[in-house]
Design a binder for these strands. Structure first.
Lengths: 147, 147
DNA sequence: TATCAGGTGGGAAAAAGTGGGAAACCCCAG
DNA sequence: CTGGGGTTTCCCACTTTTTCCCACCTGATA
């Protein structure tokens, strides 16, 4: 399971280390796409299969209007990229994706169960702050549903 | 059952001994997450399976499409970590979790039935104090209602 | 006192992250 | 075509962090 938070630098050659803890599960090649919220999503190839199948299935339960679905798919597929790690686990994030979320010198890399998210550091801390305000409620839910 | 209170030091290498009494039940690997109140939760893998299943509504593979679900998952998974004890039962608590509850040189490690909580020492004594006052009031109340 | 278990500390090796040189590749101007 | 400039790729090296292993201390016990 992909979990945890890592802050890594982006060097002059645009390289970012995938956290070692994520490498085994992600493999050598994977898919990076614009995400929802101010971030990027990274899916394993397997997960991407699932996701893309679901998204492009017009019978799905997402109640999209056709036009909406088309434009959404354009968004997810059209701007997706397959990336490959170098021999020591670094990847290159395409410029257009970096620009989308304002990445410069560092990236926050977050494991969210079966995907990885990439944030610029400031957005990530904002996101965290916002989330921790809801945290008590969320945790209540967690604790409350336990049994 | 996980019960009892232990104050252990965090050494320069960030290591903390799990109380020997907890080790058998927790096993060698377990999950540590932000908790409710100013503390961290430690779940056994088994408990975590249950919890994470609840969290990510497992019959919806596209849970990432819903904003509140996204931030919820981001919060629980992004700030969780799988930790493994060394050969003599110590673990490393990730920095981002230490910061969250202000851990420095020591930690209060508390057994709470089927999970373990980690507190910074001061918060824990405050918590205890508050709880014991409450307990007396509660007892009064309970006693009063009973007869 | 000797022994054992639990907790603490620290050296050394391994792994992870970061940086940079140089070959290989690509693209365009001449 | 051909050569130069920029980019990408591959590889090696440095630094920091993590991991592994062993030693010590203390309190409880026999």
């Amino acid at each position: 399971m992909l979990i945890g938070e890592y802050i890594h630098t982006i060097d002059e050659k645009n390289r970012v280390s995938m956290p070692a803890k994520f490498r085994k599960e992600l493999g050598k090649k994977f898919i990076i796409t614009p995400g929802l919220g101010n971030c990027l999503f990274i899916f394993t190839n397997k997960e991407w299969e699932k996701v893309s199948k679901k998204l492009s299935d017009s019978d799905n339960d997402l109640s999209f209007l056709k036009a909406d679905q088309r434009s959404f798919n354009r968004y997810m597929f059209g701007r997706a990229a397959e990336v490959e790690t170098d021999s020591i686990g670094r990847i290159l994030i395409p410029d257009f994706l970096k620009e989308k979320i304002g990445l410069k010198n560092s990236a926050a890399i977050i494991g969210v169960k079966d995907r990885v998210e990439v944030w610029n550091e400031e957005s990530w801390s904002q996101q965290k702050e916002a989330a921790s305000k809801q945290a008590e409620q969320l945790a209540e839910k967690l604790g409350g549903e336990k049994n």
